[in-house]
Each structure stands twice: as C-alpha cells, then as structure tokens.
Amino acid sequence: MAPTPATQRLVDNKAKKIVDDAYAGKYAVPAVCCYNLEGILATVRAAEAKKSPAIVQLFPFSIDFADGVMLHAAAEAAAKASVPVAVHMDHAQSPEIIRRAADLGGFDGIMVDMSHYERDENMRLSRELVAYCNERGIIAECEPGRINGGEDGVEATSEDMEEILTTPEQAEEFVDLGIHWLPAIGNIHGPYPTGGPQLDWPRLKAIEDQVGDRVRIVLHGAHEDHFREELMRQCIDYGTAKININGVMNREFIRVATELAGKVPLTTMMEKQVQAMQAVIELNMDWMKSTGKAA
C-alpha cells in the first residue's frame, strides 16, 4: 500500500532526519531557543559556518506575540540555509496553541507538553494532539514525566505537583502514541540549586535500552553554568541526540545591548548581537560534536 501524503511527510521530515542522523553518528544537534530574529539569524549562520545541522526552536510566545510572522521568518531562514536546519516548537502547553501552530505551517516538529496535567489527562491529551501533529506531517515530542523549574516560555510545575521522572515503562507508553523525541533524564529548567545537576544515568540507560531503537532521547535544562563539553558528551554517550540551549546564547543578546545601547547605531548593535550569539552557538556545536556533520 502506498504511503499517505502525511505519512510520507513524516518519513521525509527534516527535523526527524537531522536528529536520527545525530543519533546514528553519535553526536547531538543544538536546538537553539530563539525569541527574536537575531536569534534565528545567529543559529542559521552558526550552522553554515560550522557545517553543522541545527534546529531553530520557538516557544508559544512566538505565536501569541507575533502570530505567524516569526515562525515564517524562521521557516524561510531554515529553507534557505546551505545546511540542514529545522524549526521546532518547544513546550507547547495547551491544546489550542498546538493546533494553531500545526495549522499555521512552518513547524517541522512540535513539543506536546501536557506534563502539567495529572498522568491520565496527560496521556489522553498527548494521544489526541500527537495524532493531530502527525496527520499534518509534523513530528511530536512529549514529556511523560514532569521536570521541575521554569524558564521564560515554559510554565513552571505548580507547587502541589511533585516532580515525576520518566521511567522505561512510561517511555514505552508514550512511544506508542506516535512520538519521535523523548526528554528522559532528571534535569530541570532554569538555574540548578547548589550542587548542580544530579543526573540519573542508570535511568537514562534503562530508557535508552527500552525505547532507543524507536525514539530519540533529547535533553532539556542544559543550563550554561553546568552543561559544557564534558557533561554534554557524557549525555551523548548515553544516547542523547538533541540538546536544547537557551540562556547561554540569549544572555549574549542582553550583554551586547547593555554595553552598546545608545553608544552605536541601532543596526550596528544588532549586528554585534547576532555575532555574539553566533559565537556561542558555534562553541556548543563543537562540544556536541555536530561541527562538520553537514559537510
């Protein structure tokens, strides 16, 4: 039987291929959280300079704030890139925003994050919304457990909901929903408490052994104070193929603005911001071993 158009789009999905290739090649791809055009440009230019695949990652903020304008800018920049660049929505946390994002066109992937609901409702909504994305040729990422902490663009876990780390059994259930990417290690969003990240390596190994042949493991909460070359590469050794980066790059945007605002022309400051953000992304590509993989 010939595949349906949606099924074929999933097979050919750029984001899926980028991360599958990373897993097979034992490196990781940076998924760069972009809040503005400067971030999108920095990501694509870094990818081209380092000959690295990359993912431009937008939050629901980009849809709420600018409707489809920022999304379509990202999609156009990715399409014009000389190396593989995909566009993904991170932490879409309501059914309404997921359907709206999927219908706009331009996303290769969407994270269906219903982790702020209790387990049964998380499963019900995830099943429905993953199918909605897949029917449109969009791959899906889901969070079976619950990661504590918050960051700009992500709803923090409510105080009366305890952190729940993904188990191999939960991972199996979510793979059955039709997802493609799975956050599967006990890290947090935002800054870590004293002592830094306490990553559960045996848990990650067990999850990789259980579902690693069917779904790619991804890392959230790679805070710049702790996740540098050694720790990133250890995660890669355990099967991680996509690593989200946020603050380490976006703080450069703020730093340059603080130093140059009012002292140089606005266009000069914007160029310097893109250059500073690009440099950090390139360094992370080296750490993740994705440099040169798109050559």
Rank of each mutant, 00 (worst) to 15 (best):
G186Y: 09
T166E: 06
G153D: 09
N148R: 12
E230C: 03
L199I: 15
K205T: 15
R228Y: 05
K205S: 15
R216I: 03
A206G: 11
I236E: 01
K242T: 05
G239R: 06
D225S: 13
F174G: 04
Y192L: 03
E229I: 00
H189R: 05
I207A: 01
V248M: 11
H220W: 09
I147N: 00
G190A: 07
D200G: 09
N250R: 15
C142Y: 08
P144V: 06
K242P: 00
I217K: 10
D225T: 06
A184L: 03
E141P: 02
I217D: 00
E141H: 02
N187H: 04
N187L: 12
D152A: 13
L199M: 08
L177V: 05
R233C: 05
F174K: 03
G149R: 11
A241N: 01
I243F: 04
E230M: 03
P168T: 02
A206Q: 13
G221T: 10
W181E: 11
E252P: 06
I179W: 07
G153T: 01
S158D: 14
M161L: 15
P197M: 10
R216L: 07
E230H: 12
G239K: 04
K242V: 02
N250Y: 14
G190W: 03
L165W: 14
E141F: 02
E162L: 08
I179R: 02
T240R: 00
L177K: 01
I164D: 10
D152G: 08
V248P: 01
H226L: 05
F253P: 00
G150E: 13
T194W: 08
I179Y: 05
H189E: 06
I185C: 10
A206T: 07
L182G: 06
V154C: 12
Q170M: 15
W201L: 07
Q198F: 02
C142E: 05
V215D: 07
R251L: 09
N250C: 12
M161T: 01
M161S: 08
P183L: 08
H189C: 02
N250H: 14
A156S: 14
W201F: 13
E173F: 01
W201V: 07
D176M: 07
V215Y: 10
P168S: 00
A222W: 01
E151S: 10
Q234K: 15
E230G: 04
A222K: 01
E143T: 03
N187Q: 02
E229H: 06
C235E: 00
E143C: 10
H226N: 13
L219K: 06
E162R: 09
A156I: 08
P197L: 11
E230S: 12
I188T: 13
E224K: 11
V175D: 00
L165D: 11
L219S: 05
A222N: 03
R233E: 12
G247A: 14
C142I: 10
R216G: 11
E172R: 14
E229T: 07
N250M: 12
H223G: 10
D160Y: 09
I236G: 01
G247D: 13
G150W: 05
P183Y: 09
I245D: 02
I185V: 15
F174R: 01
G247Q: 13
P193G: 01
R203D: 12
Y238P: 00
D160F: 06
R203N: 15
H226S: 04
V215F: 07
H180A: 14
R203T: 14
G212W: 02
T157F: 04
W201K: 04
I207D: 01
E155F: 12
G153E: 10
L231E: 03
